[in-house]
Nucleic acid binder design. Structure first.
Length: 301
DNA sequence: ATCCAGGCTCCTG
DNA sequence: CAGGAGCATGGA
């Protein structure tokens, strides 16, 4: 067991507190331990299970990162640092994003209300994919329950300095799940089949996240929707929260439609076309805009 | 009961 | 390609 600590400097303005606020109640954050200004989780990087711990000072201008692992060599440490920078978007130059508010007072007030909030990713692409599929067409509380069930049935545990942390199951483990067991645990027939099939696709290499990340957005969507259970919404959700693509708008997302309809005074949910239309002014940063809206929705703003 | 929930597949025009 | 029926499972 080896441990290394170092400090990270995000570009300004940055708020680790906002990231924690989001993760503390996000239905997707079922493997994460989140405090007001602290975060910890076990994650598999480069074939090794690592424990990542992050804390921030009160002003949160810099982060303290602690990485632990059984064999923490230079490569593993480097991977952990890159993971944190990517997952929390520490290196983004957000000045162009902040200027988006100029032409749209409603969205502008959102940017002003959450200074330093950044698109915060789900730790692993496979995790983002499964959580998205599980979250299809069910309410958020129930989706969280199903995610916890999947972890209970197939998740792993890592031990770091005598303490146990949950880990995402390996894709092959998910592929080997018994659909009847999932059904007995409130998965629908098709949701069980999607989850198992996608586990197999990732395990076999047929679904390759590195390849997806290298594709332009439109082609990535086409590639992803070729897999059963992955429609446009799921593909976009994965691209945004799993791979950190900056400019994708999941206009069919019910939550997005609800919060946008409310803020723009429609007195109803916005339609998909309305969301898509509004999003044109967020060009280049549409994923970030979606994330800001989700953040507002989660907070009841 | 009825409607809704961070949709998907498959089938028509 | 666009639109819609049918689907599946709980929660409020």
């Amino acid at each position: 067991m080896q441990t290394t600590s170092l400090s990270l400097q995000p570009t300004a303005p940055y708020s680790f507190t906002h990231a924690c606020t989001y993760l503390a109640t996000a239905s997707t954050a079922v493997l994460d331990r989140v405090g007001e200004r602290s975060y910890a989780r076990a994650v598999r990087l480069g074939g090794h299970d690592l424990l990542i711990s992050i804390t921030a000072s009160e002003e949160a201008s810099s982060l303290q990162l602690t990485v632990s692992g059984a064999s923490l060599d230079e490569d593993a440490l480097e991977a952990a640092v890159a993971w944190v920078r990517h997952t929390f978007a520490l290196d983004e130059d957000v000045s162009a994003f902040e200027r988006l508010g100029a032409g749209d007072p409603i969205f502008g007030s959102l940017i002003a209300r959450y200074p330093g909030l950044r698109l915060t990713l789900i730790a692993e692409p496979f995790e983002a994919l499964l959580w998205a599929v599980i979250g299809q067409q069910v309410n958020i509380a129930f989706a969280r329950k199903l995610r916890l069930t999947l972890l209970e049935l197939s998740g792993r545990e890592g031990e770091f300095a005598g303490e146990r942390y949950p880990l995402m199951p390996m894709p092959a483990t998910v592929a080997a799940l018994d659909p009847t067991v999932l059904r007995a645990r409130q998965f629908s027939q098709q949701k069980a089949s999607y989850v198992i099939g996608l586990g197999a696709a990732v395990a076999s290499g047929a679904l390759d996240f590195a390849a997806v990340a290298a594709l332009p957005p439109a082609e990535a969507r086409t590639y992803l929707t070729g897999f059963r259970g992955v429609g446009r919404w799921t593909a976009e959700y994965l691209l945004i929260r799993g791979l950190g693509q900056r400019d994708s708008i999941p206009a069919a997302d019910v939550g997005l439609q609800t919060v946008i309809g409310r803020h723009y005074g429609y007195g109803r949910k916005a339609t998909e076309a309305e969301v898509r239309g509004l999003a044109e002014q967020w060009l280049g940063w549409r994923s970030w805009a979606a994330f800001y809206w989700w953040f507002a929705l989660q907070r009841g703003d």
